[in-house]
Design a protein around this nucleic acid. Structure first.
Length: 480
RNA sequence: GGCCCAUUAGUCAAGCGGUCAAGACGUCGCCCUCUCACGGCGGAGACGAGGGUUCGACCCCCUCAUGGGCCA
């Protein structure tokens, strides 16, 4: 088998998108599984949409995910460089000229207005599948020369063969075929001298010796155009595999404008999701392992990856499942690491200047098993930061006749102790029970609400310790 | 509109002609428990429809429907 070489070819139009990230991920897994190369190429021919820093951002978030290309603009191999399409324009022109010479392509001087009008006419005439009318195909060499000499702008179109069937065995979908009659003479080179996607991609994939093209399903219908080019140029086509799309809750392809779902890696990073968890979660979107295990390291995924198990039907992005996966990873973190992850969120939301490292670690430890992302701690632990106030739904507890009794009993014991740690507080709670003869919910809930203002929270002794002795005593004294 | 792809529970999915149709997330109930969370146990919940092929179809073929993608 030829050396496996795959590529991820983003446009530098912004941050790393979920859908692209998953494409990159599966290409990466495929490459590494077969000991192949994973190449990053920048498709920057859509110059209007390119954004400053887009390329760096793509690289940055891929790296964050643990996906490092073997070759890229930053790490080129001389025989394949350059890795940005706008730096490869000469190559495209050369190939376009070859095609022109061989009669596989021709210059088209039709203006956008003419084309639009013609499509309109075709539609009105009831033609179902409108396509280019080939007007310029019939230009004589002399006419072409005249128009060129007059400086008229032109595109270069591919002359699509008649009566041909383009078929291939898709790695994921199996046998797929298209008829050439359904494809109009499409543009290879735009009037501004920049190649179209389908043209450039063929040249690049061939010259970079890409062996397998794993890409999104939206490219399935581009494949026949690319196949005809491979054929015209006498090149061997790579193997294609078209992966399902990721769809939103409306079952639509994720659109960058859709706000119902976070779509960029940057956003997940900002919320405190772990890259390993994102990697794991995305690997499960449109692919499934043979067994029942769902949590895998990158190395395990590389080992067990099998392109035959890629799904054919679209996957919906399930935030809930992602939260669960991330939680599994958060639980495995060491406490100091998790605290480090959560710290910035807490620091941004609350004043932390009198909180010790121990205190923070303790706080984090109390929430570790339920945390689904770093930033979530801000909301979960608010009772330890916000000024004291009693929650609406907790008010009732303060009206229980047992509450003042347990609070008083607790205070009496608490004021006498020197140590204020979980064991000690547990002891006091037990003594309070004995002293007051009140146990269970009336005991614990009474003290909990009087001290924290909240009905819910970590176990009471831990809560009281975190709140601090002085604060607890002050609040309890006020409560009675 | 044309072409192409898809269709198993709310979601992700296993299945590859004979299964009581896995599993996970979510959901519901019970247990644990001061509460929340965690954990444990259990429940509900699916093969889009119609025709074939076959002794037998989730699985193979056709039609339709629905969803999606690309092109225009």
């Amino acid at each position: 088998m030829k050396k496996v070489r795959v590529r991820y070819a983003p446009s530098p139009t912004g941050h790393l998108h979920i859908g692209n990230a998953r494409t990159a991920l599966f290409n990466y897994l495929f490459a590494k599984h077969y000991n192949g190369d994973f190449v990053l190429r920048i498709e920057d021919t859509d110059i209007e949409r390119n954004v400053e820093g887009g390329e760096e951002s793509q690289l940055y978030y891929l790296h964050w995910l643990g996906i490092d290309p073997d070759e890229s603009p930053q790490n080129p191999k001389p025989q394949y460089a350059p890795y940005r399409q706008m730096e490869r324009l000469d190559l495209y022109h050369e190939i376009a000229n070859q095609l022109l010479k061989k009669g596989f392509a021709y210059k088209c001087f039709c203006t956008p207005e003419e084309l639009e009008e013609d499509y309109k006419k075709q539609t009105e005439a009831g033609i179902a599948s409108t396509r280019y009318n080939r007007k310029c195909l019939h230009l004589s060499p002399q006419e072409v020369q005249e128009k060129e000499a007059a400086g008229l702008p032109y595109t270069i179109r591919c002359r699509v063969p008649d009566h041909k069937t383009y078929q291939f065995d898709d790695l994921i979908r199996g046998h797929v075929s298209f008829e050439s009659k359904d494809i109009g003479d499409w543009v290879l080179m735009k009037a501004n001298g920049i190649p179209t996607y389908n043209f450039a991609v063929v040249i690049d994939d061939h010259s970079m010796e890409i062996s397998h093209v794993l890409r999104g399903e939206e490219h399935l219908s581009n494949t026949p155009k690319q196949l005809m080019l491979y054929e015209m140029l006498g090149w061997e086509a790579p193997k294609f595999g078209h992966m399902t799309l990721i769809v939103n809750e409306q079952h639509k392809k994720l659109s960058k404008r859709d706000n119902s779902i976070l779509q960029y890696m940057s956003q997940y990073k900002e919320l405190g999701y772990l890259p390993q968890a994102m990697f794991n979660f995305m690997a499960l979107l449109g692919w499934s392992p043979p067994g029942e295990q769902e949590i895998f390291t990158k190395e395990q995924l590389i080992e067990i990856f099998d392109e035959g198990r890629l799904s054919k039907s679209p996957s919906m992005f399930d935030k809930g499942k992602l939260a669960w996966v991330n939680n599994r990873y958060l639980r495995e973190m060491s406490l100091p690491d998790l605290t480090k992850l959560c710290y910035p969120y807490l620091a941004k939301a609350y004043d932390l200047k009198d909180k010790s490292e121990d205190w923070l670690n303790t706080l984090v430890s109390l929430y570790q098993e339920q945390l689904s992302c770093g930033s979530e701690l801000v909301g979960l632990a608010e009772q330890f930061f916000k000024p004291f106030h009693v929650e609406e739904e907790a008010m009732e507890v303060l009206t229980w006749e047992t509450t003042p009794i347990v609070v008083k009993a607790f205070l009496k014991r608490a004021e006498a102790v020197l140590e204020w740690n979980t064991d000690e507080v547990r002891k006091i709670l037990k003594e309070t029970m004995n002293d007051s003869g009140i146990k269970g919910k009336p005991l614990y809930m009474g003290i909990r609400v009087a001290a924290s203002g909240y009905q819910h929270g970590p176990d009471l002794a831990s809560t009281l310790v975190l709140l601090g002795k002085d604060e607890v005593l002050e609040r309890l004294n006020k409560a009675i």
